[in-house]
Amino acid sequence: MKKMVFVSEVFTSVPITYSTPLQEKVYQVLQTLEMTFQRVETDEVITMADCQQINERLTMDMVKTLFLCNRQKTNFYLFVTCGDKLFQAKAFSQALEIPRVSFAAPEQMSEILGTKIGAATIFSLLLKEAGNVQLVLDQAICDQDNYGCSDGTTTGYLKLATEDILQKFLPYVNQQPKIITI
């Protein structure tokens, strides 16, 4: 049976209150960069399966954002791919020509990205703690018109123009992503 997740009406304005410092920073930067967005508020959403009703409400497909690290936990990667793609560590590592990676620990996600499991977002690159995280984008994401992601929480989701992410946000955070096809 499909789990029903509450999804609010679509908003085009910032939230009245913020639940995390990262979430507040996200909306400040969206306004600064004049990036238009649509957003919804939801019950807590952790899995890609739970995102289906969000996708329907915002008429787009949510990206999958994974926080990965090497065995020594010294190199970190934020990998953004399509929500329906299975993650294959071997293919990812081969595409970047690096040793095998694994998922970073929840504590590292909190400390470096300012989020918890289910809320990983490209917007964590706003945080100085994420300064050494390598952004890796799946080419398929770059080819989409819309970019759907968390606002840094498990209860707020955004629809933005992919072009705005690539041409406004990434230069703002001084990030040159590696783009791979897997």
Rank of each mutant, 00 (worst) to 15 (best):
K2D: 03
K3A: 00
K3D: 02
M4N: 15
V7W: 08
S8E: 12
F11W: 08
F11Y: 15
P15S: 14
I16C: 02
T17Y: 11
S19E: 14
S19K: 15
L22S: 09
E24A: 13
K25C: 10
K25W: 09
L30Y: 03
L30H: 07
L30D: 13
L30M: 12
Q31D: 15
T32A: 14
L33H: 10
E34L: 14
T36C: 07
R39V: 10
V40Q: 11
V40T: 09
E41R: 05
T42V: 11
T42W: 11
T42N: 08
D43Q: 04
D43L: 01
V45S: 09
V45D: 11
I46W: 11
I46E: 01
T47N: 01
Q52C: 03
Q53S: 14
I54M: 08
L58D: 10
T59A: 15
T59M: 14
M60T: 05
M60I: 04
D61A: 10
V63D: 01
V63F: 05
V63A: 12
T65N: 13
Q72C: 05
F76C: 00
L78S: 00
L78T: 02
T81L: 11
D84R: 10
K85D: 06
F87V: 06
F87N: 02
Q88M: 13
K90Q: 11
A91H: 03
P99K: 04
V101G: 01
A104V: 04
A104N: 03
A105Y: 12
A105D: 09
P106N: 00
M109W: 01
S110L: 06
E111T: 03
E111A: 06
I112C: 00
T115I: 13
K116T: 15
G118W: 12
G118I: 13
A119D: 01
T121G: 00
F123A: 02
F123E: 02
S124T: 05
L126N: 00
G131L: 09
G131N: 15
N132G: 13
V133F: 13
Q134R: 06
L135K: 04
V136R: 11
D138H: 13
I141L: 08
C142A: 06
D143G: 04
Y147Q: 12
G148I: 04
G148A: 01
S150K: 00
D151K: 07
T155A: 02
T155M: 07
G156H: 10
Y157F: 15
A161Q: 14
E163L: 08
E163I: 05
D164C: 03
L166V: 13
L166F: 14
L166Y: 12
K168M: 02
F169E: 04
F169W: 10
L170W: 01
Y172V: 12
N174A: 15
Q175P: 00
Q175E: 08
Q176V: 05
K178G: 07
I179K: 07
I180W: 05
I182P: 09
